[in-house]
Measured scan of single mutants.
Amino acid sequence: WKVTVKGVEYTFDNPEEAKKFAEELAKKKGGQIHYKDGEFQVH
């Protein structure tokens, strides 16, 4: 499971962890999460 933040990729074994990480980042940066092709992208 991948989380991509401004072109930087983070990989997680667990989808729950990936989702949590993406949500935290989106909150911090005031961005939005897009889920696409099996990965979370924070913009």
Rank of each mutant, 00 (worst) to 15 (best):
K6Y: 15
T11M: 14
K6W: 13
K27H: 12
E9A: 12
V3E: 01
T11Y: 14
V5W: 15
H34C: 14
F21C: 11
Y10M: 02
H43V: 15
N14A: 06
G30R: 06
K6S: 14
K27R: 13
K36L: 11
N14S: 11
L25K: 03
G31P: 04
V3T: 01
E16P: 01
G7S: 04
G30C: 13
G30A: 05
K29H: 15
E24F: 13
K19E: 07
V8K: 12
A18I: 01
A18D: 00
Y10T: 02
K36C: 13
F21K: 02
T11H: 14
K20C: 14
Q32F: 14
F12N: 00
K27Q: 12
V5A: 12
L25E: 10
K28M: 12
E16T: 11
K6L: 13
K28P: 05
F21R: 01
K20T: 09
D13P: 09
A18G: 01
N14C: 11
Y35V: 07
K6T: 12
A26G: 02
K19M: 11
F40W: 15
G38T: 05
V3W: 01
E17C: 10
T11C: 14
E17R: 06
T4W: 09
K6F: 14
A18Q: 01
K19W: 13
A26W: 06
K20N: 09
E9T: 15
K20Q: 11
K2E: 01
E9F: 09
K36E: 09
G31M: 13
K27E: 11
Q32H: 15
F21H: 01
A22Y: 02
K2H: 05
I33K: 02
E39T: 09
F12Y: 01
Q41Y: 09
L25A: 07
G30N: 09
V5E: 12
P15V: 14
F40S: 02
K28A: 11
D13M: 07
E24M: 12
T4L: 10
F12D: 00
V42R: 02
A26Q: 06
T4N: 06
E24C: 15
I33P: 03
Q41V: 13
Y35L: 07
W1T: 05
G30D: 06
G38A: 05
G7Q: 04
Q41K: 08
N14F: 05
D37T: 03
D37L: 02
H43Y: 12
N14T: 12
E16I: 12
E23V: 11
V8A: 12
V5K: 00
K19V: 07
K29L: 15
E23T: 09
K28I: 13
N14D: 09
D37P: 08
K28W: 11
H34M: 11
G38V: 03
T4G: 01
K27W: 10
G38W: 06
L25D: 02
E16H: 12
G31L: 11
K29Q: 14
G30E: 05
F12W: 01
T11W: 15
P15G: 09
V8F: 13
E39P: 03
N14Q: 05
K20I: 10
Y10V: 02
Q32V: 14
E16A: 11
K36V: 13
G38I: 03
P15T: 03
V5G: 05
G7V: 01
V5N: 08
Q41F: 11
L25N: 04
W1L: 03
D37Q: 05
E9M: 12
V8H: 11
I33N: 04
V3M: 01
K2P: 01
G38Y: 10
F40N: 02
F21Y: 06
K28Q: 12
A26F: 04
K36A: 12
D13Q: 09
Y10E: 00
Y35Q: 05
Y35P: 02
G7K: 02
N14K: 08
K36R: 09
E39D: 06
D13Y: 07
A26N: 03
I33T: 04
G38D: 05
W1E: 01
L25W: 13
K20F: 08
H34Q: 10
K29W: 15
A22Q: 02
K19R: 14
V42D: 03
T11R: 13
N14I: 02
E24I: 09
F40Q: 03
H43T: 14
A26H: 03
D13I: 07
H34G: 06
G30W: 05
K2L: 08
A18M: 04
V42Y: 05
Q41L: 10
V3R: 00
K27Y: 12
K19A: 08
A18S: 01
E39H: 11
K2Q: 04
H43N: 10
G38R: 13
G7N: 07
K2I: 09
E17V: 08
K20H: 10
F12T: 00
I33D: 04
G38E: 05
F40E: 04
F21P: 00
Q32K: 11
K28E: 13
G7E: 05
K27D: 10
E16N: 10
F12M: 00
Q41A: 10
H43W: 11
N14G: 08
H43G: 07
V5Y: 15
E16D: 11
V5I: 13
Q32T: 14
E24H: 10
K6D: 15
K2D: 01
A18T: 00
A26K: 05
V3N: 00
P15Q: 14
Q32A: 09
T11V: 13
K20M: 10
P15K: 15
G30M: 05
N14R: 08
T4Y: 08
V5Q: 04
V3P: 01
K27L: 13
E9Y: 09
K36P: 04
I33L: 07
E39I: 13
Q32L: 10
V5L: 11
D13K: 09
E24S: 09
K20V: 08
G31R: 02
T4V: 13
H34R: 08
T4A: 03
E16M: 12
W1S: 02
K29I: 15
F40G: 03
Q41I: 14
A26L: 08
W1Q: 01
E23F: 10
G7C: 09
A22N: 01
Q41M: 11
E17D: 12
W1R: 02
I33H: 02
K29E: 15
P15D: 04
K6V: 10
A22P: 00
I33G: 03
I33V: 14
H34W: 12
E39N: 10
E16W: 14
F40L: 06
F21G: 00
K6M: 14
E16V: 11
D13R: 07
F21D: 00
V42W: 07
D13W: 07
G31K: 02
F12E: 00
Y10H: 03
K27M: 12
K19G: 05
N14M: 04
V3D: 01
K19Q: 11
K20R: 12
A26T: 07
G30Y: 06
G7W: 04
G7I: 04
V42G: 03
P15F: 15
P15N: 06
V3S: 00
K6C: 15
G31T: 06
Y10A: 00
K6E: 15
F12G: 00
P15E: 14
V42E: 03
V8N: 08
F12I: 00
F21L: 02
W1G: 01
A22H: 01
D13N: 11
E9D: 05
K19N: 04
K2N: 02
Y10P: 00
K36S: 11
A18L: 03
D37H: 04
K19D: 02
K27F: 13
Q32C: 15
K20E: 09
Q41T: 12
Q32Y: 15
E39S: 07
E9P: 04
H34T: 14
F12S: 00
E17Q: 10
T11Q: 10
E39K: 07
A18K: 00
F40R: 01
I33Y: 06
K29R: 10
E39L: 05
G38K: 12
E17G: 06
G31I: 06
K28N: 11
G31Y: 13
A18H: 01
D13E: 08
K6R: 11
P15Y: 15
G38C: 13
K29S: 15
Q32I: 13
G31D: 06
T4H: 05
E23M: 11
G30K: 07
K36N: 09
K20A: 12
T11L: 14
F40V: 05
V5P: 00
T4P: 00
Y35N: 04
L25H: 06
E9V: 14
P15S: 09
A22I: 06
Y10Q: 01
V42S: 03
H43P: 04
I33Q: 02
P15H: 15
T11I: 14
E24L: 12
A22T: 03
E23H: 08
H34E: 11
K2M: 06
K29A: 14
T11G: 05
K29P: 08
A26C: 13
T4E: 02
A26I: 14
L25C: 14
V3H: 00
E39W: 07
E23N: 06
E17A: 12
H34V: 14
A26Y: 04
G38S: 06
V8D: 07
A22E: 02
G30P: 05
G31S: 06
K29C: 15
K2S: 06
K6A: 14
W1N: 02
P15I: 15
A26P: 01
K6I: 09
E16G: 09
